[in-house]
């Protein structure tokens, strides 16, 4: 059974077709690359899947349940986390605090518990702290634990936003240009992290313009243009598809 099934997703921005009856299915444990020219609707698709933008029509089933119409924070709680093309982190909080923010169901985040069940909240917080610190160390940011997120390099910030998705406990991770604009050795590191995700039971959809990166991590590629799926298949198949070549030459 597919983890995620989109059918007939449509979204227009002032007459521009950002999504036009887009459909796709993603299986558990897959790494799917989403490619296409600028303005093809890739980020719009992410925004629709995560509840940031409402779709005009279409359905999205996640683990067989409809998620269209649910608010963004509920979709995250259901197990879909994302990163943003323009990096989003709380720059004036530490690396540790950024990842701590992303854990779900924290008792200390409920006001009543802050005052009336403070011990239980503190225990839970301490446990999360350990988990978060271990996670950050595991992904090579251990020495930055107490630095402000702002003090990290751009590549490290991208890595941290990926770590945040893991902290959120998401099963489906949507990465919007995870290796764009960062140093080559950091690209290696992030690609290794992405490759290792299916082994942890995670499923990944990633938007990327770097075809080398795509071919190294993706099991399958979907090519989008003008809001619609043009073709899909293995990286080489899609790369050599005449429609893809044509779209890029236009």
């Amino acid at each position: 059974m597919s983890l995620l099934v989109c059918e007939g997703l449509t979204k227009n921005f002032d007459g521009v077709k950002a999504l036009s009856s887009f459909s796709c299915a993603v299986k558990q444990g897959e790494i799917v690359g989403l490619i296409g020219p600028n303005g093809a609707g890739k980020t719009t698709l992410f925004n629709v899947l995560t509840g940031f933008i409402p779709a005009e029509s279409g359905t999205v089933l996640f683990r067989g349940k409809e998620i269209i119409g649910k608010p963004a924070h509920k979709i995250t709680r259901l197990g879909i986390a994302r990163t943003f093309q323009i990096l989003r982190l709380i720059k004036r909080l530490t690396v540790l605090d950024n990842s701590l923010l992303c854990y779900q169901h924290q008792p200390g985040e409920r006001l009543g518990n802050v005052f009336f069940r403070s011990r239980q909240s503190a225990r839970h917080e301490a446990a999360n702290r350990e988990k978060a610190a271990a996670l950050i160390k595991q992904y090579g940011l251990g020495d930055k634990l107490h630095d402000l997120a702002d003090a990290l390099s751009y590549g490290q910030q991208k890595l941290l936003s990926l770590v945040c998705c893991l902290a959120a406990g998401a099963d489906l991770i949507l990465l919007d240009e995870p290796v764009a604009g960062i140093a080559p050795e950091m690209i290696e590191k992030i690609l290794d992290v992405i490759k290792g995700l299916p082994a942890q039971g995670k499923t990944v959809i990633l938007i990327e313009h770097n075809m080398d990166a795509i071919s190294r991590v993706c099991d399958r590629v979907i090519f989008m243009d003008a809001g619609a799926k043009v073709c899909e298949g293995s990286v080489d198949d899609v790369r050599n598809d005449p429609r893809v070549i044509e779209a890029y030459l236009d």
Binding site: T76, L89, R92, C102
Partner: peptide, 20 residues
Amino acid sequence: PFGRVLKAIREDEVFALAAG
């Protein structure tokens, strides 16, 4: 942790939403 969420909202609401 409640206060941490408040600060996150102050700094970046979209991030806070994405964090659930």
